[in-house]
Design a protein around this nucleic acid. Structure first.
Lengths: 243, 243
DNA sequence: GTCAATTATTGACGCTGCGTCAGAAAAGTC
DNA sequence: GACTTTTCTGACGCAGCGTCAATAATTGAC
């Protein structure tokens, strides 16, 4: 039993090693660049052994994406625990998005693989559920803050907009800007020199536009965001230290 | 010369036929599903002949993406010509985005291929320029409206935000929501039942938040958007009729 | 109308990479 | 130490990319 469980642990360990080998390849050379033969030879195992851990290449990719989504979730969990008004906590989650994209750029890129149809379709139900769960948890954390604001009467929803749909708007603008920033050939050539700051201004405008109290001018918003980014740094490292 | 030009035209015609064959395959089966052998056999030409028209698979994909981007550009050109205040014209471009995603869903999906690193890197400088040009023109059309609003004193930019960065925010929220809607496993399960309407509310909130005159309540905004969507329909068909 | 030069087409070929599976090796059991 | 079970292996079949030498069609000079 001890023996068996040791073996068990060794196998699990290897699953992890495969991911450690695959990750940099996927990041630097994309899906095409990642090959099972290459992973196998780099691990000094036969290809068949790799296939004992993952049924196909797509599952490796999705496993890496899940790791990255989990990292985001943990950051969100911590960020949502920051004290202050609901509005400050909402901004904290915006800061977490920004933090994640800037300091965990590889994870941000890896995460995107779950949006690839071909990869999604080849993956197991089990892993798909893991992804949905993680996404759901992140949504809960943010919509929870919106609900807090509603309870405290710091915010009132417009007719026909749910708390989740309010979150969706912030999700869309943050996600959209980050994808555009990462993949648009050259935003500066289009006149967009500081996309991150532009999105901060948009988010502040949105929050004020929904009359989410306390209202803030841009300077105050910007200062608060700077503080929040600082607050997130140690949180991030403590997550990293628990592996 | 007439003879030569006839040949020339035949070749160009075939380039187009290749795209017509490749398009539905790419749409329904993705990049992996699209194979040069398959295109060749479906065209009843040898593979080598296909390679006389496109140096690799990626270029076919990007050529299709460019077609779709051009369609969007044309729609934007028409939409930006709609009469009314700058604010209404700005909303017209929002409506054009919505229209494009809902009525040209395949084109919306094809467009995304330009954001794929692996594909972008394999494509020719020439086609990359075509893409940048098209993107730049779309930006110009929208930022032109912002500048009109500034001239008419219907809008004032916050400190540190350029006209293009204002556009960027709307680009991000529209683009982000459309990608999320298309690729998120199940938004309804997250409580997002009407993403399109949610984004309309967010855009109205943003415009009002920036104090873009004339301010509108959500009901008015919604009505105006419905009118704009109607206005776009014949414009779209006239574009389609010029092929 | 002929024919050499040019241009276009073909498909077999080399190569890479996925996923499989029968057999070899190692670990576990009694 | 003889067996069963588990794990590992790498050659194999297959598919798809991009090439290129050989072949066919077209052109235009005379």
């Amino acid at each position: 039993m001890v023996e068996l469980s040791r073996k068990q642990r060794e196998l699990e360990q290897r699953t992890n090693e495969i991911l450690r080998v695959a990750r940099p390849i996927l990041i630097s050379e994309g899906f095409q660049g990642l090959s099972m033969d290459r992973v196998a030879s780099q691990m000094e195992y036969a290809k068949g052994t790799i296939y004992n851990h993952f049924p196909n290449k797509e599952e490796i990719v999705l496993a890496l994406a899940v790791e990255s989504m989990e990292l985001r979730r943990k950051l969100f969990e911590r960020a949502s625990g920051i004290g202050g008004t609901a509005r400050i906590r909402m901004m904290g989650l915006g800061a977490a998005c920004e933090f994640f994209t800037h300091h965990c750029t590889d994870d941000f890129v890896l995460e995107q693989w779950v949006r690839n149809q071909g990869i999604w379709d080849k993956s197991t139900e089990q892993r798909q559920n893991l992804i949905r769960q993680c996404e759901g948890r992140c949504m809960e954390l943010v919509s929870g803050i919106v609900r807090d604001a509603l309870m405290e009467h710091a915010l009132e929803l417009p007719d026909g907009l749910t708390a989740e749909e309010l979150v969706f708007g912030f999700w869309a603008i943050n996600y959209g800007s980050q994808i555009l920033t990462h993949t648009s050939p050259s935003l500066p050539a289009l006149g967009i020199n500081n996309p991150a700051n532009a999105i901060r201004i948009h988010c502040c405008t949105l929050l004020n536009g929904f009359r989410w109290q306390p209202l803030m001018d841009y300077a105050t918003y910007s200062n608060e965001m700077a503080v929040l980014m600082e607050t997130l740094t140690p949180m991030f490292w403590s997550i990293k230290n628990e592996q």
